[in-house]
Design a protein around this nucleic acid. Structure first.
Lengths: 335, 335
DNA sequence: CTGAAAGCGCTTACAG
DNA sequence: CTGAAAGCGCTTACAG
């Protein structure tokens, strides 16, 4: 169907080896020959067959991206970061989402054999051991927010703990001591680290550590909404609520609005991630900025570095800083 | 590095042809041979090299997905729909976003040669002619919301026109006649169709057709915010505003909230897309439901159908219906 | 039921 | 500077 190198060679009156050399810029070629080959190749709209090439070169110019899920703005930003960086370096993206269960991850991993040069894997939910067992040893891998941190894998993390702590300190500086927290999924590393940061900082500022102030959640708007209702039923309401991600904070805002509770006059609300939408909730959401786009592009860069590394070993763990972004949803504690 | 079919064959004491037959379930094989090959292949953790296979079979089990952009919830939902459907059928996704300009699209298209069995292309911004010229004739293609509708390409569309009209009728039924409209990007087909639906329905209900009620926009929250401010400066404010997508409606809500204008008491606000977040704005956003997830999964199914079609020709244009979802952001006209 | 061989579209030593 | 040939890891007629 498509035009092959053979046709270009015949048409240009040279061997396929020469065509290959011209197109790859390898080896010496007479200028006139070069021009002729290029002219024919353009005219025939020849595009090299990558699969054939990669069989020999062992390079596919493709990066596999395995994500636990694809729901929501977080992932689209992450993918955007990876994609824009990949594009810049001439790489394609093979995407696989929703490997919720371990066997899905394994299947997705297997399916990438021979089609990618490296892997970016985000798997905050899977146990470290399981992950280790499934990762192909021969492929460079960058792990995002993963519980694994031993070589030979590069790990890129977000400073979840530090971000959560600084939010608590921010709230404390506004006078809050009774602070509700809406948790993320129990097996999710990000969620656990955020909870840990919350707890430690709360102790530091001598906040109220009542268990009733900590509500279950799963990172969805719905969970935030439910958590909001539960918190409102408390005998002693918190003066502020910190949700482990923005989606839940948005659900929280919605529940408070439904109940006629004013934010931040009666209750302050804070989130985590600082998704693009956070600026546009009412009131605008105070959050912890996670450089999602950068997380994606940096992951790709680390992977490319490993690809060209050739055995050299560098840092294995990199942590991206977070930043507190104070907006209208947090204010001084009322009572 | 990886184990090849040759190693499996040697280890199992058979020819590579036999290994191939066993693994693909083609051709007759003695049960005992079969078992032995399977045992060895499992033990060695053999995974066939897809690139090598696809060189012969001309099938890659991969679908290329080309999107104009990756920003926001719309795209993550769309990708999620495509991905979940692809996974179910054993297909991988090769993703390329942000082909804003025509040459990017062409580059992205070329890069897919030999690595995909078919293409899902969303390109509401590019002119029909340009698109036609670049699409590989030999590859099955499904076009999403694209201006092209002539064979041989399958086109899947969302009923933008009908959705916009029904929103106008909804607003009219609440007594609104002075309705502002925030446009999407000028060259975007979805945006144009929504505007057209708005205009036609507005005429139907004898609404105010003042040009000052139609504001420029580009589908971002920021544009919605700016549009909100502009509308508030009008001598005669509209009693309702219809944004061409939810992101802009959210920006609008934020601008109104900043200005202390109550929604829907003073102004009704409506969006388009019904992204997951629309339920959680305050007040919850009235919108037009676009089945984004279904758009993605349906696109993949249509593509797969074309792949197995073998020359048979079916419907070439399919339009997914939209649905009005009335929530708290729209109410009866005040004055 | 099984194997030897051709061939998919490329790249790359090896000669010349 | 250029070409013939080997080979990447597979699949698939063709024999037997």
């Amino acid at each position: 169907v498509s035009v092959t190198i053979k046709q270009v060679a015949r048409e240009a009156g040279v061997s396929i080896a020469t065509v290959s050399r011209v197109l790859n810029g390898t080896g010496p070629v007479r200028e006139e020959t070069r021009r002729r080959v290029l002219e024919v190749s353009d005219r025939l709209r020849y595009v090299p067959h990558i699969a054939a090439r990669s069989l020999i070169t062992h390079r596919t110019q493709t990066v596999g991206v395995l994500l636990p899920d694809l729901y929501g703005e977080f992932y689209s930003e992450l993918i955007r970061g990876i994609d824009s960086s990949a594009r810049g370096h001439g790489y394609q993206l093979l995407l696989a989402g929703s490997h919720g269960s371990g066997s899905d991850l394994e299947a997705a991993l297997r399916a990438t054999r021979g089609r990618v040069d490296g892997l970016i894997v985000m798997s905050p939910d899977v146990s470290a051991r399981k992950l280790q067992a499934n990762l192909p040893a021969e492929l460079p891998v960058v792990l995002l927010n993963s519980p694994v941190d031993r070589p030979p894998h590069q790990v890129l993390r977000v400073d979840n703990h530090g971000g959560a702590s600084s939010m608590v300190r921010h709230l404390a500086s506004l006078g809050h001591r009774r602070i509700g927290f809406v948790k993320g999924p129990a097996h999710n590393l990000d969620a656990r680290e955020r909870l840990r940061g919350f707890r430690e900082a709360l102790r530091e500022v001598r906040g109220d550590a009542s268990p009733s102030l900590i509500i279950e959640g799963d990172f969805t708007e719905d969970a935030g909404h439910r958590a909001g209702r539960r918190l409102l039923e408390l005998a002693r309401r918190p003066t502020a609520v910190f949700a482990a991600n923005d989606a839940m904070a948005i659900g929280l805002l919605s529940a408070l609005s439904d109940a006629g509770v004013r934010v931040p006059q009666e209750i302050s609300v804070a989130g985590f991630d600082d998704i693009p939408l956070a600026r546009f909730t009412s009131p605008p959401l105070t959050s912890v900025r996670v450089p999602i786009l950068e997380l994606g592009s940096r992951a790709l860069e680390l992977l490319l570095a490993r690809l060209s590394e050739g055995g050299r070993r560098g840092e294995r763990l990199e942590v991206l800083p977070t930043a507190l972004v104070a907006r209208g949803s947090t204010g001084v504690a009322h009572a």
